[in-house]
Nucleic acid binder design. Structure first.
Lengths: 245, 245
DNA sequence: TAGATTGTTAATCGATTAACAATC
DNA sequence: TAGATTGTTAATCGATTAACAATC
């Protein structure tokens, strides 16, 4: 954090010198106890682009590319250089004039913003086809998640392991949640039990849901976050586009 | 279409009477051969809301609700009545002053806009866990799709049927596509073969892809539509929210 | 130094919301 | 008729794009 902090102190000095009344910089980055915090209200549009940046930068890393300008990055992603710089500026200063961005460094910064370095703990509730598919194929570690356990009601899967993850009885959920930290629950259960299960889990303290039930789940507690995946919405969007091209 | 047409003729008369120079109505609904076509450029934001409307209206139907106002619908969905009316007005006039909207009628209109009544034909390429999950659980018929066949390279699944859908060898894809209409291909194959397979299928005439490979696929032909599902982007968005609440 | 590229401010564009006449 | 609610125009808000001084 040291060099970034130095940069900001310098910039503030510049502002004072030029007798700027504009205080946007102060609004954006609050210096608190020596650490630099980011802008308060990040728009949803920006947040949704962060994973795309992360994906692109990971790809660039793999291709061995060391540095990139906002212009080239924009070209690769089909967005403007302005938007990229505007987006990044919500979180800090990651580039260098005349040079651009160091790919590896920028990837790491955005990964940090997304929380991939926080070792979040995750369990899966519902181990049907979709649950199996995710456990077997989804790169949880690469997104900063450790999968600790899975739960189901079916005797056929209880007691087995899927890709090294033990499957327990859904009856043991309460006990498990009391004894283990769980940041996110993946809901891959039938629609009919979705809201009830979610309510029960919220009551047990779960604050994050990755929801595949095709139902809009929600909670009155704003600290409980739902990320809903709506397969049908996605396919219908495609249906619209092929029906109206 | 008759009563709608009458409405528009009347409205145009009104405009003339009041000596409006504003021609927005003409831009919006082109009368062609007696049928009313919709506005040309529908924004992505509007299109992405259409499936949500459809989902909500299906639910209202199931609950036996006959009519609804934009205000109540907005309340249920957490959006403004203004936005709802603005959205619908891109496609026509589906309501009645003083009454609101007939739920069943509106559902059917939006379904029609989305193309659920077009009987699109779909095949799946890649029958792993995710393919199985979709074939078993996804309500293709409700979204207007008929699943005709699935393809894979693995001897273990070739020749089997999944939920009534026959699984053929991927070697037979070319022949199949030459002999059958296919509107959409579901791509549930490994990332490593994604772009190559997509290119091959585009060359064979496929114009719609529901892409689960976690890769950004694209084609130079603007008529080829890709709907990409990015599981990782979704989970990272959730990661951001729980890391920054 | 000259050229390149950032972070930031200003301008533009588009999407959402508010207001209201028309009308059921 | 009076009340309710639409479809549409106008106003507002926010997001994207352009421009540019700062500076590596």
């Amino acid at each position: 954090m040291k060099p970034l902090q130095k940069k900001i102190v310098k910039k503030i000095d510049n502002l004072r010198k030029r007798e700027y009344t504009n205080c946007k910089l102060f609004n954006k980055k609050r210096l608190m106890g020596g650490t630099v915090l980011k802008k308060e209200n990040i728009s949803d549009a920006v947040i949704r682009r962060l994973p795309r940046y992360y994906r692109q930068l990971t790809d660039l890393c793999a291709r061995g590319i060391v540095r990139i300008s906002s212009h080239s990055l924009g070209n690769e992603m089909g967005i403007t250089a302005s938007q990229i710089r505007q987006d990044f500026s919500c979180f800090g200063e990651f580039g260098q004039q005349g040079y651009g961005y160091n790919v590896e460094e920028l990837r790491s910064e955005i990964g940090h913003i997304l929380g991939v370095d926080q070792d979040h703990h995750l369990i899966m509730v519902g181990v049907g086809h979709l649950g199996h598919a995710l456990l077997q194929n989804f790169p949880f570690p690469q997104t900063g998640f450790t999968v600790n356990a899975a739960f189901d009601v079916s005797e056929a899967v209880i007691g087995t392991t899927v890709n090294g993850i033990p499957v327990y009885s859904a009856q043991d959920l309460d006990t498990y949640l009391q004894q283990n930290r769980v940041d996110v629950v993946v809901l891959t259960i039938p629609q009919s039990v979705a809201q009830d299960t979610a309510d029960r889990l919220v009551a047990l303290g779960v604050r994050g849901f990755w929801n595949f039930t095709n139902m809009e789940l929600s909670s009155s507690d704003p600290d409980v976050k739902f990320e809903n995946i709506h397969f049908a919405d996605s396919l219908l969007t495609l249906s619209y586009r092929i029906a109206n091209r």
